[in-house]
Structure formats: C-alpha cells, structure tokens
Computed example of a mutant assay.
Amino acid sequence: MAVELNHTIVMARDKKASADFTATILGMEVGPQYGPFLPVQTDNGVTLDFMDAGDGPITPQHYAFLVSEEEFDAIFARIREAGITYYADPGHRQEGRINRNDGGRGLYFEDPDRHNLEIITRPYGSGG
C-alpha cells in the first residue's frame, strides 16, 4: 500500500461555522458528525476533520488545495462575493492579487480561525 494522507484535524472555535465556511467556499459538503469531528472530504479522499478547540489557543495552519482552472474561477468568485480578503502570497503582503506561479494561478485567504487556505491550479515546481 502506498502512503497517503487520509485525514487531518482542523482546530476551530466553532467547528460547524469553520466546516461550513470551508465547504461553501471550496464547493464541497460537510459530512455527518463523527465523534467530536465534522468532516469535509476533498475529491482525492483526504478529510479535514473540524474539531472544537475549547478554550485553548488555536495555532493557525496552512492548507493548500489543488484545483482545476474552472474550480479556481468558481472558488475565486465565491471569495469575492463573500468579501473575503485574498492575497497572492502566504505572508499576506500582496492583498487583492493572485499569483501566477508555475504557469498557473493561486491565492491565499483566511478561514474564521485564521488558518491560511490556499488554492492553486498547478503544483509548485511543476514548471510553466
């Protein structure tokens, strides 16, 4: 069996709000609750398991999603429609811009818990 990422836990102040936000913006669905988790599964089978953090701190993480050009357009439209600030870079210095790395398109935006979400149309290092 090949090694594959199966799931990761995404800590949230409000797991329902965070799962709904991510699923809505990316055009996915929130699955039924499983134990303390609200899952959002990507098309390649990786599940983001949203879990309430309680009173503890949340360390922002980075989650990157490889999408098609058509999916990028649809996600980008939802980001703009929702008035979400987006950036061309992970350090959030190039506000309101997208990048063209490796001949594709990409951008970064934050979820309600300040996790840094990224959509790209080409994997980094793929040329272009």
Rank of each mutant, 00 (worst) to 15 (best):
A2K: 12
G103W: 11
I9D: 04
M51R: 12
D55A: 11
N44K: 06
K16E: 15
D73Q: 11
A19I: 04
F65C: 02
F65K: 00
N116C: 06
R80H: 10
N116P: 00
L66N: 11
Y108Q: 04
M11T: 03
A74D: 09
P112V: 05
F72H: 03
E70D: 15
M11L: 07
H62C: 10
I75K: 04
D43F: 08
R97H: 14
A64G: 14
R122V: 08
I119F: 06
V30N: 07
E4P: 02
E110M: 11
G96S: 08
Q94Y: 03
N44G: 11
E4R: 14
A12N: 05
E110T: 06
A23G: 11
P39N: 10
T47W: 08
D89Q: 08
E29K: 14
L26P: 00
F109H: 01
Q94P: 00
F65P: 00
A12F: 01
F109A: 02
A19W: 01
E118V: 09
E110S: 12
G103D: 10
R13N: 13
E118A: 07
E81T: 08
Q61S: 15
Y124D: 06
F21Y: 08
A88P: 08
D14P: 03
N44S: 10
E95Q: 14
M28V: 09
V46E: 06
P60K: 13
